[in-house]
Amino acid sequence: MSTPDPGRVARPGPGERRDWPLWEVFVRARRGLSHVHVGSLHAPDATLALRNARDVYTRRQEGVSVWVVPASAITASSPDEKDPFFAPAGDKAYRHPTFYDVPDGVRQL
């Protein structure tokens, strides 16, 4: 689903310094699920980032747990090298169960 968009910090606008730091917000919808990126917000520190995240992203009980991460702390793969970067997995169909032939009549395999 959603992925963090740390690329935004690479293009600061002229007014960037006047904004509070940017935080990426991840919400665990319920027990048993992973935290998922839901968006971002500005806050002066981690405590207020959490509080703001609760108010902005969980007004309808959308979560049981929230993470906030400084956007500047995220390292991401570059979109320009997307093909070569992910290429090593491209020719390894044998990593998937569908690669293998199963004789007729063999069950539970």
């Binding site: 293009r11 606008g13 940017l22 500005h42």
Partner: peptide, 18 residues
């Protein structure tokens, strides 16, 4: 909240909130 979701989306395009 809707304003904030949208500002957050706009900021991914390289413009600042301020």
């Amino acid at each position: 909240g809707h304003g904030l979701y949208l500002y957050s989306a706009a900021e991914t395009l390289g413009v600042s909130r301020a």
